[in-house]
């Protein structure tokens, strides 16, 4: 039986060798520079603390990423359970006789016929960015991962420790709020 070479850790080189990689990994999931910076700092600290647990079976980077993944889940859990956040207003009656039907003032209104051409407009990206900023963070993270970074559903579910039905509810709510925001700021006649 052959043994592959054991990997070793060298914390003095971590920043130089891995900080860009860890940062890119984080920022493509959590689109906030300061938060991403804090998360990778926590990752390096946790790695240092736990370096005696490193068995050398995986590379240094793989090991750091496994710690980072847990930090990202922790962060998502934290914001997911944060109280007092404004909930997204939905388009439908949630109970009573009209449950599941459109609330009158939320019925889609017709948009300017020129909107299709507007897609090339640079200003539209700014409007989208702004509307994304109004989303509760837990919705923005999932929406971005799915729509902008185009992760597979399964991957997002694993990385944020949520179920796929949970994911689709979040996507639905995020798109509902974005739609309303863009309708008001961009598409309305």
């Amino acid at each position: 039986m052959s043994y592959s070479k054991k990997h070793t850790l060298d914390p003095t080189n971590w920043i130089e060798l891995h900080s860009d990689y860890l940062y890119n990994y984080t920022i493509s999931r959590i689109n906030n520079h300061d938060v991403a910076k804090d998360i990778i700092q926590d990752t390096f600290f946790a790695a240092l603390k736990g370096k005696d647990n490193f068995k050398g079976n995986a590379s240094e980077r793989t090991w750091l990423i496994s710690i980072l993944k847990r930090k990202i889940i922790d962060y998502y859990r934290k914001i997911n359970s944060a109280k007092g956040k404004a909930e997204v207003r939905m388009n439908f009656y949630s109970d009573g006789e009209r449950e599941g039907q459109w609330i009158e003032e939320r019925v889609p209104s017709t948009w300017d016929a020129e909107v299709e051409k507007d897609i090339e407009n640079e200003e539209l990206s700014k409007a989208i960015e702004k509307c994304l900023g109004f989303l509760p963070e837990k919705y923005a993270i999932v929406f971005r991962m799915k729509t902008i970074q185009q992760f597979e559903t399964e991957e997002i579910c694993n990385e944020l420790a949520i179920t796929s039905s949970n994911l689709w509810v979040i996507i639905h709510r995020a798109r509902t709020q974005l739609r309303k925001c863009l309708e008001d700021s961009w598409f309305k006649n």
Partner: peptide
């Protein structure tokens, strides 16, 4: 309209 929005998000994705 959702199809239009999806196109917009795609466009945004490329810029982003």
């Amino acid at each position: 309209q959702n199809v239009v929005l999806t196109k917009c998000y795609n466009k945004y994705k490329n810029v982003e």
